[in-house]
Design a protein around this nucleic acid. Structure first.
Lengths: 348, 348
DNA sequence: AATAAAAATGCAAACGTTTTCATTTTTAAA
DNA sequence: TTTAAAAATGAAAACGTTTGCATTTTTATT
């Protein structure tokens, strides 16, 4: 007798068991759960008790077979392990929970091919809507989503002309904001430390904003001042260490706050005074940047708000079956001047 | 003609459509997807093409109705927005993805009542297993899980006597490790900065470890040296600011790295030299602590490894239907001595 | 080439709900 | 009180797969 690989859900009571025990039909039990107000008080009481006694847990999968709605939404991010995404994911998740929905999450590690596989995998699970990060996506994913007519929203990036609904910040503007601040401080010798932008339209937008502002001000990026650095504290610190070792620039504009933190630590390590010797700025402003010493001057991208608002948007798209209004939602970015920047002593 | 609120999945091709187009029975199509090797080459080809042409996406919900396995696992964490959880979640998620499983995630914000609601909600979605953080859980949740016979694993904390399988670090030992380091450095005036421990057995374990070591060494925690601080950089910094303002201790043991960061920033702000004037240690060692200036002495809790291993455990429990062996898995913690500690100048 | 065994496929009955439609019960109106 | 209308409930047919069993096809054996 071979160990009886039961493990069956068989033991678990179903809606029929509840119905039997409550002396009503399964249909009524179903109604009790989906629209309690439609069943009469005494009946309701009995069903409630029966369900309680039996420890009944409904099976939404079976229900969803009719329903068309599964009650779960998907969220695909490049990575979860990233301060600012984590903040956004949390907000997104909480909002969904408030509406008794669940969240199917997955990370693709900046691999668009994997993203497509994930989209398919989520679609197979019948999600009611899906949130993506940024506008750069494989056409195959987009086609699948379109064909299934699943509500989609792109987060993080705002683009008035995008084909898909979005909730996000204007990254280009954020870049402009921070560059203008640096320009206004009269810095001329400026270094850029940005992540690779090919698969990352957020970083790309920011960099474009920065570069355009610099150009408009007639400032050229010197040789070896346009550096690439992934989202990694250690890498940023190392790059900054060598950048600052030789001929330090007057200011360093970082593509995100994590990089800026790394640069700041490099300065501490080298004994370079911030902002006296060099000005440092980031973009993002996540929890932490404010408390660093010196407090980091950056541009605030409201991660929580984006997460929450994207969830709201998806929820309403799923309920109404209509595209959201407004189609594109821009969340405000805000320059946060703290203590990592000051005017260059080499006045012009 | 009223805008036809179709939005139906109706348009979407089902397994029957694929079967028709491929000239086989739905059963064969089903087999093609679930065990391709059992259908012959030519048939396989035809089905593949038909599915491709139609843009068929299978409906695992319907399948799960028979299967008993939904292919999704649940993960409930206190919060996603926390460096070290994020790291673990990412690893957990990646491991699941590798096995073509999906992840249903939810956060309860340290509210055990909410956790129970979430457990129920996940159970309603027929998950194949569930991972929880720590051993402190509402009995109601536990009962539901037991009754449904869903594989459960507790992460983060290791306890050889726990009733549920676990994959985690021995937090008490971690606490002992860091305290012993401080003791060995001859510090006597030591302050503790720990999160509230009532709903958090990880922090509790660490604190117990620290306190026991201190007691064993005959060191008493002075008045106002046993401070409480939530997982928040700003709060930690503020508390440290006032702690250090008056009569700074020789060493500060922080319940986690985030608090330690805050304390470090407070020192920077006050011009207090670390480790010359005061030694600071954390527990956790997440990305960042290494690159801080000075590098933080801490105890490494391998978040990634825990996440990955917990996923593995759940996967195998789900497949075999058996409890894991070993039932409790302890991942190694490791003292990381960096540059935020040094021997007290007041030798005894 | 005939036969037996093995492999591939098809048929139809599940899986656990929801929902339409019909029926019964309750409430309101006369 | 009847009677009509409204509300609550029940019966049974879905929902889109998977799977046990039966049947057909293929492969291996003689």
């Amino acid at each position: 007798m071979k160990k009886a690989r039961t493990r069956s859900r068989k033991g678990a009571p179903g809606i029929i068991d509840v119905a039997l025990r409550a002396g009503v039909s399964p249909a009524t039990v179903s109604r009790f759960f989906n629209s309690p107000d439609v069943v009469r008080e005494p009946t309701r009481k009995r069903i409630e008790k029966a369900a309680q006694d039996l420890g009944y847990i409904r099976d939404r999968m079976a229900g969803a077979l009719h329903n068309r709605f599964s009650g779960t939404f998907g969220l695909i991010v490049p990575t979860i392990d990233n301060a600012i995404f984590a903040e956004m994911i949390e907000a997104f998740s909480v909002r969904l929970q408030e509406e008794d929905r669940t969240l199917l999450i997955a990370a693709h590690g900046y691999d668009l091919g994997l993203e497509t596989a994930i989209v398919r995998s989520l679609l197979e699970r019948r999600i009611d809507g899906i949130a993506l990060v940024g506008f750069d996506h494989d056409q195959v994913s987009l086609n699948m989503l379109k064909q299934r007519d699943v509500p989609v929203v792109c987060m993080w990036n705002y683009d008035a002309n995008a084909a898909m609904p979005s909730v996000g910040a204007d990254n280009e503007f954020a870049g402009k904001l921070i560059a203008d601040h640096i320009i206004q401080l009269k810095h001329r010798d400026i270094a850029l430390l940005f992540p690779e932008t090919s698969n990352n339209d957020r970083a790309r937008g920011r960099k474009i904003g920065v570069v355009q502002s610099l150009q408009a001000a007639g400032i050229a990026i010197g040789e070896n001042r346009d550096l690439q650095c992934s989202y990694d504290l250690g890498e940023a610190k190392n790059i900054a260490l060598s950048l600052l070792g030789h001929q330090p620039p007057q200011a360093i504009i970082c593509g995100n706050d994590i990089i800026a933190h790394g640069v700041l630590f490099a300065c501490h390590s080298l004994g370079i005074k911030v902002p006296t010797d060099v000005s440092i700025v980031g973009i993002g402003d996540f929890g932490g940047s404010e408390y660093l010493e010196p407090g980091l001057t950056t541009v605030r991208l409201p991660a929580k708000r984006i997460g929450r608002q994207a969830a709201d948007t998806l929820l309403s798209m799923s309920e109404t079956g209509m595209p959201p209004v407004p189609f594109h939602q821009s969340v405000p970015v805000q320059l946060k001047v703290r203590f990592s920047t000051r005017s260059s002593q080499f006045e012009m």
